[in-house]
Design a protein around this nucleic acid. Structure first.
Length: 562
RNA sequence: UGGGGAAUAGUGUAACGGCAGCACGAGUGGCUCUGAACCACUUAGUCAAGGUUCGAAUCCUUGUUCCCCAGCCA
């Protein structure tokens, strides 16, 4: 496992704490972190930040990182999500070894500890309804004590036991910690520990009808697993006093909670609720729609695990909210894909070219380099004949000065093949260009001219006789706004969905070399971008997702109107 | 309004009382059988005002702005 932080002496604030603790011997040199997802949705790039932080720290400091499902709410959690989360963390390249845990496995221990707190007079059964509980909690001026706050230990013990046994309907009773109803931090105003929910749990079935709240459960889970550094997001900062209170009252092993800022990305929504809405309202094709910032969506789009990990290293970790420029993610993507993706030629919008002085019926094969960044990737053979396809965008009848590509009378190079010169433009009755006539120079075979003359550009092309048809799916940002939540009163984040976020192109032409390309394999289509074989692709119906375009100088010139 | 956090180029992130640096983006040029990659250069910053100090992004004071918290969600 490559350590992205190896040799990096600047530690982020979390790693600094861990390093200091290792030095002082606070945890006897142990480092144990955990990634604790709730299995109620698919993982996204924001989770990747947390995953890389937790697993990364464990790897760098010679510790362990647990994968723990925080499954304390049976009404929202499903096995489907457990499976996808396991798959995604694995795909990102992290390994939890035997340390796969479920919060629900600790339900009995949690209950025993609750009984202990009741016996200490630190917890009580409360009969207030949800609405009353809210009223009693109060506002900034403070709350007031529940009328059930001073029940005897015996009565509380009896009621708690009967809650567990299922004697009471949902919502009629709760177990609450007895702390301080006037505390300025709302989380300490006698927080709920258990609520009654007669629902089947994806792992414990109907064994339990009371379920622990996050604040009660989470620290206990960390304690049981002997976590050293419990890393969570900023919104739990207000909960830390409660995290500490429970562990102190119980007098059990007490990890340190550390909070960091969650990831925000331009042109992206990150909350599970919003992603779920996109899926449920069919605004995207599913959780793994390549436009989604989910791990499975990005995988299908063609992102590599390494690109995502490099990105997570690069953005670092901090305590204040920030929004990362999507361009940085794309930079990390291209950086990795450039090194690792085999090159191939494909024509997205074909324009037929007939090379008039090339012998009819002749087919020859030419050597092409698979990856100029990686000599070990070797070479392949590309067929060539009299009729080929080039990209429509690579020809202009009235070419401006900065357009270097093919135009009437102009000579260009066909990659790995020959120099050709455009001699004639053929149009249909509506004036659309349907075909180009060219001549070639046989002396330039392979792409070099013996007389040393230069051409301004090199075009990709596909031999018409051997071309394979393919579909290409081109993606843009899902939203047209950098911040999709920045909308007018009364609208929500779906108001600025990009109508052009997906363009399906059929009739694309690709090299025969791609005939058996495997699902999810990643390629660079030369001069166009990085593409990934879609999971729905078949050998007789190839589908490619455009992961990212190549940086495109000409597009900038064209776009600026120069 | 109570409590908890935080502010460094357009964006992100370093500098831990001692030269404000790096990356992305943007721009210019070089190179090129990918207008890619690569290389060089340019651009632009300490929230504000006071104070301590030989010296402050860093310490102190005051202010400003932003984020989080009143689910029987996590």
């Amino acid at each position: 496992m490559a350590l992205e932080n190896k040799g990096q002496q600047k530690l982020d604030f979390v790693r600094q704490i861990v390093a200091d603790d290792c030095k002082s011997g606070k945890w006897d040199g142990r480092v144990v972190t955990r990634f604790p997802p709730e299995p109620n949705g698919y993982l996204h790039i924001g989770h990747a930040k947390s995953i890389c932080l937790n697993f990364g720290i464990a790897a760098e400091f010679g510790g362990k990182c647990h994968l723990r499902f925080d499954d304390t709410n049976p009404e929202k959690e499903e096995q489907e999500y457990v499976d996808s989360i396991i798959e995604d963390v694995k795909w990102l390249g992290w390994d939890w070894s035997e340390n796969l845990f479920f919060g629900s496995d600790y339900f009995q221990q949690m209950y025993d500890w609750a009984v202990e707190l009741v016996k200490k007079g630190k917890a009580y059964v409360c009969d207030l309804t949800a609405e009353q509980t809210r009223e009693y909690r109060g506002g900034v001026e403070g709350g007031k004590d529940s009328p059930y706050r001073n029940r005897s230990v015996e009565e509380n013990l009896d009621l708690l036991e009967r809650m567990r046994k299922g004697e009471f309907p949902d919502g009629t009773k709760t177990l609450r910690a007895k702390i301080d109803m006037a505390h300025p931090n709302f989380n300490l105003r006698d927080p709920l520990m258990y609520r009654i929910v007669h629902a089947s749990h994806h792992r414990t079935g109907d064994k339990w009808c009371i379920y622990p709240m996050y604040d009660w459960a989470h620290g206990l889970e960390d304690s049981i697993e002997k976590i050293t550094h419990s890393i969570c997001t900023l919104e739990f900062e207000n909960h830390r006093p409660l995290y500490d209170w429970f562990l102190n009252e119980l007098g059990i092993y007490h990890p340190q909670q550390i909070e960091f800022a969650r990831l925000n990305l331009t042109y992206t929504v990150m909350s599970k609720r919003k992603l779920l809405k996109l899926v449920q309202d069919k605004l995207v094709a599913g959780w793994d729609d390549p436009r989604m910032p989910t791990i499975c969506g990005m995988r299908r789009r063609g992102y590599s695990p390494q690109a995502i990990r490099n990105f997570c290293t690069k953005i670092s970790v901090n305590k204040f909210n920030s929004t990362i420029d999507f361009a940085l993610l794309e930079h990390c993507l291209r950086e990795d894909l450039n090194k690792t993706s085999p090159r191939v030629m494909a024509v997205l919008n074909p324009l037929k070219v007939v090379i008039e002085n090339y012998p009819e019926g002749k087919v020859e094969t030419l050597d092409a380099i698979n990856n100029p960044e990686d000599a070990a990737a070797g070479t392949r053979q590309v067929p060539f004949s009299r009729e080929i396809y080039i990209e429509r965008d690579d020809f202009m009848e009235d070419a401006p000065k900065k357009f270097f590509r093919l135009a009437p009378g102009r000579e260009v190079r066909l990659r790995y093949a020959y120099f050709i010169t455009c001699t004639n433009v053929i149009k249909d009755s509506a004036g659309n260009i349907t075909e180009l006539r060219c001549t070639y120079d046989p002396a330039t075979r392979g792409g070099d001219s013996p007389d040393g003359r230069k051409v301004k550009s090199t075009l990709h092309w596909i031999c018409a006789k051997n071309a394979i048809d393919a579909e290409a799916r081109l993606y843009e940002h899902l939203f047209t706004k950098e911040n999709p939540d920045d909308v007018e009163e009364g609208k929500d984040f779906t108001a600025y969905l990009n109508p052009n976020s997906l363009t399906k192109l059929t009739g694309c032409k690709v090299e025969p070399y791609l005939k058996d390309a495997k699902a999810l394999s990643r390629w660079q289509f030369e001069r166009l971008g990085y593409f990934c074989v879609d999971t729905d692709s078949k050998s007789d119906k190839l589908i490619f997702n455009r992961t990212a375009t190549l940086r495109d100088e000409w597009a900038k010139i064209k776009g600026s109107g120069k």
